[in-house]
Design a protein around this nucleic acid. Structure first.
Lengths: 345, 345
DNA sequence: ATGAAAGCGCTAACAG
DNA sequence: CTGTTAGCGCTTTCAT
């Protein structure tokens, strides 16, 4: 039946010839655009599936100016967050008959620009995850990319729709949790300094500090992955903090691992929080307290925004997912000896 | 400079007009195919970048019959294995100027066929991960898909190149490890019954059993994810096995988690092995003993095979990556009381 | 309702 | 070496 290797795929002309009609009639029947005599239509359909014909997407794209494809540009396919976004996006887009192209800039901010512009030409729109790109560059880029949806950051000026997590509120909840547990010396292990989600966390920190002068909150540059979290352990211990807020779960995992090697107990000696709630966060020992970000939904909603843009419907408002606090075993009461002890800046 | 939103992107005709030459000359200069007078060439280049011109990939694809895109079809974007494959593939392909399209069949074997065929039309070749597709269907599909590289399974008849892990040898090593630790009653938690990698593991089991009649090896149907591993715990305990070989790391994690809930200690009461070595396997408590599969390399090599096919070079042989045994904390000596105790089938 | 013809943007013969 | 022309496979006026 199927499976016989056809050297070159059939064209609309083959179908037209076999059905004894013109090209336009075939096109009309197959696209259901115009009224066609039912007798002819039947012949066309018969011919089409006798020849196992499907219109060339390439040719259609060229003439229609529409590829039915969108691209997602990510800074790093290694990061579990983007897996989730990709999965959500891909499935949602597929339901609407759209395909998705992935472009991994491998953390290079300069590449990201080129890559996005280049990729844009092969599709109808871009879902852009570019947390580190400077705001000005981003603004300029957005105008070139046209239908674009931002993930995990918002644009200042443009009316570009965005789908993101509310990193500020997530970190605020974690801060309150630790304070409620009696922690008075906290340390935040920062991610990429200029990244949007890092800035949001810093804003949460500032607001919290202003509100709670009894808690000392320090910031230490760190990073975004396991290794960087691991390397931060000595700094964490030196800081004297009893509660550590890691930039994300990966950093928290690295930190807990290094802490374990040094014989420091979590949460007895120090409480650790992550961010994101990656799939394995709950299975760590102890299970990681974190702010859960629904990454798959992020991807799905990114598609919905994109679909609106592609249908030239109203852009829709930016969506913020509020992270859900997941209190697990990596946090607990502050060790007795330090409660209320410190008064340092 | 850049950033001014151009309503419609410029065409080769615009460049030709501005440079005062014909379309073909522009094409020739920009593709460097034929010798062009240097003076004209310079004018063309000047015009091209004054207009910020890039040839439409769509139009080129149509006329060249080549899209510079490949697609990867996966059964489930949720599985960490495919993340790795995708990442390796995407980066390797990008280095050669190729783009990648992802198609997630969301575990539906029937969809997979349709999806692969449909997706194929938008690109130059398919990297196919279809572990569950029946052999006969696969064979038929392969002829339609033309340039295709298989990941994690081989095709019987066709000379389709494949890139896969040697699941059989990996499981054999795990079996030997457990036997060396004194385990004489083992249980294998099987994955998808007809999947290639499950069949390979079963082959390893049979060979091992024949070679070591002193070890009782049972098989229990299970699955491929965390939840299925979790649900297998009671069956595992009922079996009396002291060593459990989970289909993969996800299953092993689920099992260990459920075992923990029941107060069963790993590895003191029962040893557990995984398969794949997903990123977090080493950070579990206890760290998971597993057979490490280099998923990123799998993706990279899949690209290299594909590149050979696209360059109509010799297909290249199928590549087998031998999993590396990672002995960690989830396995240990068999509990004394059961060593040599059982003689059941 | 149907067919002929133009054209999407580009490349590759084919002439000169 | 350069320009003219004919497509790649399809959709869509525009006539009929």
């Amino acid at each position: 039946m199927t499976g016989r290797p056809h050297e070159r795929s059939r064209t609309i002309a083959d179908v037209a010839a076999r059905a004894g009609v013109s090209l336009s009639t075939v096109s009309r029947v197959l696209n259901g655009n115009a009224r066609v005599d039912e007798a002819l239509a039947a012949k066309v359909r018969a011919a089409a599936d006798a020849l196992d014909y499907t219109a060339s997407p390439l040719a259609r794209s060229l003439v229609l100016g529409r590829t039915n494809t969108v691209a997602v540009v990510v800074p790093d396919l290694e990061n579990p967050t983007f897996h989730g976004v990709l999965r959500g996006l891909s499935r949602a887009a597929a339901r609407d008959g759209y395909h998705v192209l992935v472009a991994d800039s491998v953390e290079s901010v300069e590449e990201e620009r080129i890559l996005a512009v280049e990729t844009r030409r092969r599709c109808d729109g871009i879902v852009l995850c570019a947390p580190r790109m400077p705001e000005d560059d981003l603004e300029r880029l957005l105008t070139q990319l046209q239908p674009v949806v931002l993930v995990n950051r918002e644009a200042r000026s443009t009316g570009t729709p965005a789908v993101t997590a509310d990193y500020r509120s997530g970190l605020t909840e974690l801060l309150h949790l630790l304070r409620a547990e009696g922690h008075r010396t906290l340390l935040y292990l920062a991610g990429a300094p200029q990244s949007s989600s890092n800035l949001q966390r810093l804003a949460a920190l500032r607001a919290f500090s202003a509100e709670h002068p009894d808690v000392a909150v320090r910031v230490e540059p760190c990073g975004v992955n396991f290794a960087e979290g691991h390397d931060a352990a000595d700094g964490v211990l030196a800081s004297g903090a009893t509660g550590v807020l890691a930039f994300n779960d990966l950093v928290a995992m690295g930190l807990m691992s290094a802490l374990g090697e040094r014989g420091v107990r979590v949460p007895d000696d120090v409480s650790v929080t992550g961010f994101d709630d990656i799939p394995f966060a709950r299975y760590l020992t102890p299970p990681l307290t974190t702010a859960s970000v629904p990454v798959t939904e992020l991807g799905e909603q990114a598609w919905h925004r994109m679909a609106e843009l592609l249908g030239s419907r109203a852009p829709g408002h930016t969506i913020l997912f509020r992270p859900r606090l997941e209190v697990r075993g990596s946090t607990g009461p502050a060790p007795a000896r330090t409660v209320g002890a410190e008064a340092a800046s």
